[in-house]
Simulated assay, not measured.
Amino acid sequence: MSTRRSGFTLYQENTSLDADRIAITLLEKNILSDAVYVDIANPPEELLDINQQLILPTLETKEVTLYYSSIILEFLDERFPHPPLLPHDPINRGKFRLILKRIIHEWYPLLEKVIKKGEADKKSSKAINDLLLRYDPLFEGNIYFQGNDFSIIDASLAPFFWYLKIYQIDVPEKATATKEYSSNILNRESVQHYYKSKG
């Protein structure tokens, strides 16, 4: 994937859904960035210089230092509008923000428990399976989330489905639209490139 812009550093923990969605967005925006993996117990001095609160992920650019993933993602889409990853019209942008909030506050915590524990148990797997079945209609009929264009929602869901695969949590057979969507999103060039680069 070619790069045109540089001067970006993403400070992140090694396993972070929020950091992953930012990194994928940077790739989609054709932005070359350096990844600095942070041990929160022993943070690098350069991070402390720009973010004493140690809020991760943190994005440092030549222009500004930002943290909180939602703020970083909106900055990237507004500062680098091509390709657009949020709808242009305010009504659909509002709908996307609501969906993103639900993903971050409802989807991510279920998987973060698994990541923290290092394995999936029956309870966590069932909770995730129930969620995917409930939301299956949202993925019907499109390559990406409710359309054929990649969006910030897709960048946010890609890490979720990637880690499902890592922890061997299968998408339920009955969630046919979700299974197809997850295959599409995990085969996206930016997603493949990012996770291969992480090893």
Score class of each variant (00 low, 15 high):
E78I: 08
N51A: 07
E60K: 15
T25R: 01
L110D: 00
Y37F: 09
E60V: 15
L110N: 00
A35V: 14
A120N: 01
I55Q: 13
P57S: 04
S33F: 15
L27F: 11
P109A: 07
I115T: 13
D121Y: 02
D89Y: 07
L32A: 15
Y37A: 06
L100W: 01
E45A: 13
P87D: 11
L100T: 02
P84C: 03
L111H: 01
L66Y: 03
I91D: 02
E63A: 14
A41L: 13
S33T: 09
H88N: 14
K122I: 14
L32N: 14
Q53M: 14
V64Q: 13
L110P: 00
I99W: 10
Y37H: 04
T61I: 08
D34P: 01
P43L: 12
E106P: 03
H105K: 12
L47S: 12
Y108L: 01
D77H: 07
L54R: 03
R102W: 12
D89N: 14
I71Q: 14
K62Q: 11
S70F: 08
F75D: 09
S70Y: 04
L26S: 08
E28L: 03
I99Q: 04
P109W: 08
D39Y: 06
N42A: 12
G118E: 01
P43Y: 10
L26G: 03
W107K: 03
D49G: 07
D49C: 13
T65G: 00
R93Y: 08
P84V: 07
T58D: 06
I115N: 07
Q53F: 09
D49Q: 15
I22H: 11
V38T: 00
S69T: 15
D49R: 14
V36P: 00
F96K: 09
K113Y: 00
S69Q: 10
P57A: 11
I40P: 00
L85Q: 09
G118S: 05
Y37S: 05
I104G: 00
L26P: 00
N30C: 10
I104C: 04
R102E: 15
A41D: 13
P87L: 11
E60T: 09
D121W: 03
Q52A: 10
P83K: 06
A120K: 07
T25Q: 05
P90E: 08
K116P: 02
G118D: 02
